[in-house]
Simulated assay, not measured.
Amino acid sequence: MTSTRPSRPGSATSTARIADVFPPPLPPLLRDIPLVPSYFSTLVPQQLNLWIGNAPRGASSGLHHDFADNLYVLVQGRKRFTIFSPADAKYMDLYGTVKRVARNGLIVYEDDVRDDGAFPADVARWAVEDAQAKVDALEAQGVKSGDEWERATARLEEAMDAMLEYAEDDLNFGGEDDFDADGFDDNEEDEEDEETADQFFKSSKSAKKRARPAEAKPPPADSMPSEPPSFSRIPASALHPSDDLTAAAANADHKQRLALARRVTCTLDPGNMLYLPASWFHEVTSYSGDDSDVHIALNYWMHPPTGTEFAKPYPDGYWRAVWEAVERKVVDSGLVQKGKE
Rank of each mutant, 00 (worst) to 15 (best):
R114N: 12
D115F: 03
D115Q: 06
G117P: 08
G117F: 04
G117D: 06
G117T: 01
G117W: 04
G117C: 04
G117Q: 04
A118R: 09
A118G: 13
F119K: 12
F119Y: 14
F119V: 12
F119D: 15
P120R: 01
P120T: 00
A121V: 14
A121C: 10
A121W: 10
D122N: 11
V123F: 00
V123E: 10
V123G: 02
V123N: 02
A124H: 09
A124D: 11
A124L: 07
A124S: 13
R125F: 03
R125N: 10
W126R: 06
W126Y: 14
W126G: 05
W126K: 05
A127R: 14
V128K: 05
V128Y: 05
V128S: 08
V128C: 14
E129H: 02
E129D: 08
E129G: 03
E129S: 09
D130V: 05
D130A: 13
D130T: 09
A131S: 15
A131Y: 11
A131Q: 12
A131G: 13
A131F: 10
Q132N: 08
Q132R: 08
Q132K: 05
A133N: 14
K134L: 09
V135R: 08
V135C: 09
D136N: 13
D136S: 10
A137G: 09
A137T: 12
A137L: 11
A137S: 14
A137M: 11
L138C: 08
L138W: 05
L138K: 08
L138F: 03
E139G: 04
E139M: 10
E139F: 00
A140D: 15
A140W: 04
A140C: 06
Q141R: 15
Q141G: 07
G142Y: 02
G142P: 12
V143M: 02
V143W: 01
V143T: 09
V143F: 00
